[in-house]
Nucleic acid binder design. Sequence first.
DNA 1: GCTGGACATTTTTTT
DNA 2: AATGTCCAGC
Length: 788
Amino acid sequence: MSDFDIRYCAIRRALIEREFSRLNDMQQKAVFKTEGPLLLLAGAGSGKTTVLINRIINLLRFGSGYESEYAPENAGEEELKKLAYALNDMDSLDDPEIEALCAVDPPKPYEIIAITFTNKAAGELKDRLETACGAAANDIWAHTFHSACTRILRRDIHRLGFSKNFTIYDDDDRKKMLTTVVKDMGYDTKRYDVKYIASEISRAKDNLITPEEYAADVGDDFYKKVVSRVYDAYQRELLSANALDFDDIIFKTVQLLQTCGEVREYYQRKFKYVLVDEYQDTNHAQYVLCSLLAGGYENLCVVGDDDQSIYKFRGATIENILEFEKQYPAAVTIRLEQNYRSTSNILSAANSVISNNSSRKGKTLWTENGVGDEVYIYVGETQEEEGLFIAKTILEGVAKGEKLKDFTILYRSHALSNNIEQSLKRENIPYRIVAGLRFFDRAEVKDMLAYLWVVNNPSDTVRLARIINTPARKIGDRTVELMRAAAEREGISPFEAACRCDSIPELARHSAALSAFTDMINDIRSKLDTLPLPELYDLLLQNSGYLSYLQGQGREGKMRLENVMELKSTIMEYCERNEEPTLNGFLEEISLITDVDRYDQEADAVTMMTMHSAKGLEFDTVFICGAEEGVFPSYRSMDSEAELEEERRICYVAMTRAKRRLYITSAKRRLLYGQTMYGKLSRFAEEIDPSFVKRHVPRIPSHTAERAPTKKKTVESPRASVGFDAFASRPASIDFSRGEIIDHKAFGVGKILNVTPMGGDLLLEISFEGAGVKMMMAKTASKYITKL
DNA sequence: GCTGGACATTTTTTT
DNA sequence: AATGTCCAGC
C-alpha cells in the first residue's frame, strides 16, 4: 500500500460516504461492508429494507470501492485531483467518470440475488430498486425463496426427471394427493391422520431428508414406518404427475445444486452477492440453499431479527441466525438498533416484554422519536365490552381527523375476530379482514385454475380429478377409478388413458363421455401457442361447460361468475405486465401468491389480521386484543418454555407494529369455541414496565364487586379509570344538519359540511374559518358547540 | 350425484 | 358458536 493508495482511498471513501450520508452510522457500516459473510441484526423499524436497497445500490455503483485499500492501477495524480475536486462539488457523483474512479469491480445487476419470504417484500424491493437505479433493477434477482427456486428449476429440472412445465401443488392439493395415496395403500385414513402424515413429510423435506433416509431412520416405530412408505409413494406419485409441492420447490433445488456440479458452478459463479431477508425464518433447507448459492464468493449477507422469529412451527429454526457466526467464522455482525417507527414509550414497552426471553442475541432498540402516549391497557368484563372499547376509540380518533386505515386490530387467532367484527359493524365502522376466505381458495376460482393447470400439464392428476366431472359430464367415481387403474397398468397418465379410451376395453363403454372431455382439453391445448391467454380462458370457460354450469346457479352463480371473471382480469393484468406471457408463467405466479399480497394498504378502512400476518407492516394505532392468559399466550404453548418464548416474540412483533399508539385489550370473561373462558390479563401485558403504561379498569359492576383481584387492581393504580368513558351514555346529541353555522369553543365559527350517522352518533365535518376542516363526533363535540 | 344431518374441530401458516 | 367434512340415503 503506497502513500498514493492511502490518499486515494481516503478521498474515495469520503465521496462514497457522502452518497449515503442520509443513513445513520450503523446503516452505513452495513452498506459499505460488501465483501464476505455479514450478519445484520436489524431490529423492528430500524430501516432494514432501506439498508438492503442502499447496499445493493452501493454494490452496483461502487462495488468494493469503499473497503478496497488500493487505488485503481491506471489512476494517477490527475485522477486523484479529479476526485478531490469532486469532493468539493455537491453534484459530482452524477458524473460517470467520477463514479467510475470510485468503483472497484462493481457486479452486474444479474450477479446479485436478494431473497425474501413474501411476494410483498420482494415486490417492495423491486419497486424501490427500480426507482433508485432504473431499468438495471430488472436484472437483479429479487425473489422469494420459492420463486427464485422455481426459476432455477425451470431451467434444469429435467436433470431430476421432471419436465419444465411442472405443476405446483398447494397445501390443499398435497392433502388430496396424500389422501388418495394413503387410501390406495390400503390404510384407513381414520387410523392414519393424513394431516399428521403431511406435516411429518413436510418436516422431513424441510430438513432435506429423502424417503430413503427417512426409512432408514424409523427404527421400530410402526407409525413412522407407515409414514415412511407413504412418503415414498407420495414422491413417486408427484413425479408421475410432474408436480412439486411447496417444500419440494426448495428441496429439489438443493438436490439439483448438490448433485449437479455443472448447475451448481453456474450459479455459484453467477451470484457474486447473495442477500437474504428475514433470515430468522429460514428452515434448514433454506439455510443450505443460501450457503450453496453463496458458495462461490461467500459474499453472503443475511438480515434478520432473532426477536421476530415467529414461524418455528413452520420449520423455521432460529439456530440459523444464532449460529451464523459459528458457520462463518469470518462473519461480521452489525446491529441496527435505532428505531424510526415508534414512540419511545411503545419501544420501551416492547423492550421490557422481550427482555424476558432468554435465548436471544441481545439487542436494545432506541429511538429519537418523542415519548408519545403511554401504552394503554384495557380490561373489559366481556368480549363485547372489549369490542365496544375498540370501536369507540376508533370513532374518537376519526372524530379528531384520523383515518380509518390508521387503525389496525391484531389478534392471536382468527377466532377472536368475530366479536370485534360485530362491534365494528354495530358502530358502522368500515373494516377489512386479511386472510379469512382467500380469493384463490374459492371453489369456482380453484376450478378454473384447475382447468388451466390441466391444459398446461395433463399429467396433473389432482387437478384433473377436481374438474373431470365438474360440471357433471357423466364421468363418475367409478369411471375415474377405472381410468386410474388402466393408467397404472399401462404406465401412462390417467389423462393419457382417457385419450386412448377406445383401445382400452374397460373404458370403451364410457368412451363418449371421456372423449368429449379429452377432445375439449386437447383442442384448447392445441391453441396454447396461438391464442392470447385471455381469449384462451374465455374459450375454456365456454367449452368446458363451466359457464353455463354457473349460469344455472341463480344468484349464487352470478357471484361465482364474477369471481371467475376476476380471475380473467388477473390473467389480463399478468399479460400486460409480461413481454412474453405464457400459461405456465401465469400459473406459476399465481400459485406463489397469497392473500396478504392482495391486501390493499390504501383503502380507507380499519384492518384486522392475525399478529403473524402483520409482520413487516406498520400502523399508526395498533390494538392487540384478546390479551388474556390462555388466549395470548395460547393455552397450547403454556407448558413449554420454548413455545412461550415464541409467543412472547409474537407479542414483540405485534407491539412494534405501532407507530404512535398502542392499546392492549382484554376481557375477563370471553366466549370462545362455545365456552366461557376466564383468563387473567396476559402475562405479556404485566411484563411491561408500569412507567410506560396507562391502565384502564372499568367501573366494577355490582355482581363482580366481591372479586378481590379487581378491587386490588383499582387500589394499585390510581390512574385507572381516568379518561375513558366509552360506556357512559350521554344525552342524545343536538340535531345537526348540513349547512348550519356553529360556534366551537376551540375552533371558532364554522359551517357544517357533512353529517354522517356513525355508530349511534353523528360524524360532523365542519369547515372552520380559522382552523380549516375538522371531523368530530356530535356527542363529544356538542359540549363545545353552540348554534348560531 | 345431491342433500341433509351427524360429527368433529377450533394457534399461528411468508410459499 | 360456527364452520367444515363425511357419509348415508334418496
